[in-house]
């Protein structure tokens, strides 16, 4: 599988990274180079092999249903590029 300009542009859109045509053109061969390299995995026989789900075999722990966090609005908003009236502000979204 290899990617073309349109695919790279689509991926850039999915990843929300603005790219010029020149950026895209430069990335096409780079990505194809990497994809071509990783595709050697296709040759590995994985018949009947389960995908790895946990690096170290252990069970998911569950937390008790206790409120022990929150009420830290100032901390939550402290690093915001634009915080107004206790909210994060973003350019108007039309739904």
């Amino acid at each position: 599988m290899s990617v073309d300009t349109a695919t790279v542009r689509h991926i850039a859109k999915l990843a929300r990274i603005a790219m010029s045509d020149a950026d895209i053109d430069a990335l096409v061969p780079e990505l194809n180079n990497i994809l071509g390299w990783v595709e050697q995995l296709a040759a590995v026989d994985t018949e009947g092999v389960e995908p790895l789900t946990a690096v170290i075999d252990q069970k998911l722990r569950l937390r008790d249903d206790i409120i022990d966090d929150g009420n830290i609005r100032d901390e939550v908003l402290a690093n915001a590029p634009d915080a107004q009236h206790g909210f994060f502000a973003v350019p108007k979204v039309i739904e």
């Binding site: 599988m1 994985t46 092999v49 995908p51 790895l52 789900t53």
Partner: peptide, 17 residues
Amino acid sequence: FYDAYFTKAQKVRTLIK
């Protein structure tokens, strides 16, 4: 592409482990 790449890689990861 998910199965061809990601799932495949996680299977190979099982083999590596």
